[in-house]
Amino acid sequence: MSADAAVIDVKGLCKSFDGRRVVDEVTIRVGRGRICGFLGPNGSGKTTTIRMLCGLLKPDSGTGTCLGFDITREAGEIKRRAGYMTQRFSLYEDLSIRENLDFMARVYAVPDRRRAVEAALERLGLQPRAGRLAGQLSGGWKQRLALAACLLHEPQLLLLDEPTAGVDPKARREFWDQIHDLAASGITVLVSTHYMDEAERCHELAYIAYGKLLVTGTAEQVVSRSGLATWTVSGEGLFDLAQELRHQTDVAMVVPFGNVLHVSGVDAAALERAIARYGGRPGLQWRRSEPGLEDAFIHFMEDVREAHR
């Protein structure tokens, strides 16, 4: 594999279940040592795409490679070199932490298994709990264990499917620090998430909705590609204001964020005219602001949703 070849390089992946197209022409390229955030609403095809990348599912059409191996014909080679962390905890709850790691190490034929397992326990700080049954662990510890298990065979590619769902902020931060360490050592990571703060920690993003890949690029690129202009408004009567603003054709979306509303539109000038009517209303503070990632994503999603109607 040459240095600039992408670790994940797939084109036009499609997959249908029961006649419903779950993944539609998805093309992704991720270079070595990059962290690619894979975003999208629930049921948008993230998990299905990840499963196709690691050989768990065969795409109906589309081609590509992971780590230089063909995803349809050489799935076995990919499985041997990639680590896949499932969305739902999928190690054995009735095995202890050490037994789980030992099982995974055997399955991957890890050389010097015992030492690898001990090293993994130590690295993750799981050693004092090694004898505990996996089923008794809290969400955060389960997540650490699952990550440790899929790192045992020193994969060059990590596919993480919503790894931090249900994990507290501190554990999430530690997790992301570790992901960055891994990426720095040359491991490529594709991680799906719903959290915008996590999306911002990725080198690049891919956003998928209704099975279609809508946008790729860095966080800044994604925001600028949305072409949104955004105003924030704070003050009183925001709920009623939001209802009124939503009826304005030039207002693309109105999203409440805590005590402020984000009001966005595609045409900056038209948006300004639309909100000018409310500018005089007492008790409201209007401020021009930058659209965030979340604004951009919601905008992208609503665009396709309309196209779907």
């Binding site: 499932t86 999928s90 190690l91």
Partner: peptide
């Protein structure tokens, strides 16, 4: 049922 199948299938086994 417990979801461990997915993990098993993702390994080279």
């Amino acid at each position: 049922e417990r979801g461990t199948m997915e993990n098993l299938l993702a390994t080279p086994v």
